[in-house]
């Protein structure tokens, strides 16, 4: 046998090695967090960027739902919108471009005590991360994904994005984009997302309402949130902004949100399109399915210490 350096388990990985116990206010006496307590770095976004209101409404959600600091888990990929976690005073992860969903799935599946929020841009979600979007939706991993859609690549300064409409002039399509854009709602519905909603940064109450509904949904909840890039695509969503002469039309109350085909049809035209919950259905989450497998197999090994379970395998290999 070779010589092994570190076979002994090192002390706890965390820094929770404080000698003195931490005096804390009991959970019941904790007051809802104030905006000041939840904000961290000052956002680096351009003045007027739609992303500000999405952040403000996330703060509102935290306040309203009386979430505790340590339970707030914010994950993002790369993009202007994806800088989100730095602005929230809570546990956060700023991962690589397009891969926030599988990262967040790892958190959600291994830590069922947390509700994970993922924020990101349209390029992050539907271009480089397109495959992950499909699979996270179909597996119904429990988390909330807010795509801040500005229909352009903001951080890299004005290239065509997968949601840029035909005719959109960017640095990579100076003559106007020619490719058919992705329809995020159809994409989500077809992939098997169990909660699909649409909102816009121009309507704060509606954003909050959608965030709350998404958070309460037991499964993969997806929100397309229009969020204007004032720098590279100003006026992109004016047709849905009443202050700019547009129309903010809600999904009709008569719509059956469990009707997949009806939802698909409602998503037909997104300029300006409708706002609200398009689709919502109950299907076992990945988290629940895994928990069931675990309960089943652990039940079969009840009363055994982990080493004894492993020993059973080793006994079979003699």
């Amino acid at each position: 046998m070779s010589e092994i350096a570190i076979l002994n388990l090192p002390a706890s990985r965390g820094a929770n090695t404080n000698a003195t116990p931490v005096p804390l206010i009991p959970d019941a006496d904790r007051k809802p967090l104030t905006k000041k307590e939840i904000s961290a770095d000052h956002p680096t976004w351009c003045p007027g960027c739609g992303d500000f209101s999405v952040l403000a409404l996330y703060f509102k959600l935290i306040e309203k739902r009386k979430m505790h600091h340590e339970k707030i888990t914010t994950v993002a990929g790369i993009g202007c919108s994806s800088r989100f976690p730095y602005f929230v005073q809570a546990h956060g992860a700023h991962y690589i471009h397009g891969r926030a969903l599988p990262f967040a799935s790892g958190v959600s599946l291994s830590r069922p005590d947390l509700h994970v929020f993922v924020f990101g841009g349209d390029g992050d979600a539907f271009s480089i991360g397109g495959n992950h979007f499909t699979h996270t939706a179909r597996k119904n991993v429990k988390l909330t994904y807010v795509v801040m859609d500005n229909s352009v690549y903001g951080l890299t300064k004005n290239q065509t994005s997968p949601t840029s409409p035909i005719g959109f002039k960017s640095k990579t399509d100076v003559w106007g984009a020619k490719d058919q854009p992705i329809n995020p709602l159809k994409q989500a519905i077809a992939a098997g997302a169990t909660f699909v909603a649409r909102t816009s940064h121009t309507n704060p109450n509606h954003v909050l309402q959608m965030m709350e509904a998404a958070m309460d949904h037991d499964g993969f909840s997806f929100i397309q949130c229009l969020s204007e890039c004032v720098e590279f695509y100003p006026g992109a969503f004016d047709t849905s902004n009443p202050r700019k002469g547009g129309k903010y039309e809600l999904v009709p109350e008569s719509h059956d949100v469990t009707d997949e085909y009806a939802a698909y049809k409602l998503s037909e035209n997104l300029h300006p399109g409708l706002f609200g919950v398009f689709y919502k259905n109950k299907r076992a989450t990945k988290n629940a399915n895994e928990a069931e497998i675990i309960a089943d197999l652990q039940g079969k090994h009840a009363g055994l210490e982990p080493w004894q379970i492993l020993k059973k395998n080793f006994d079979r290999m003699k």
Binding site: R13, L24, H68, H69, E70, A90, H91, A93, H94
Partner: peptide
């Protein structure tokens, strides 16, 4: 690192990036 779910008394939370 401290894992999400860990309360920090100072109210200052880390980000991994």
């Amino acid at each position: 690192h401290i894992a999400p779910g860990t309360r920090v008394a100072s109210g200052k939370y880390p980000v991994v990036t």
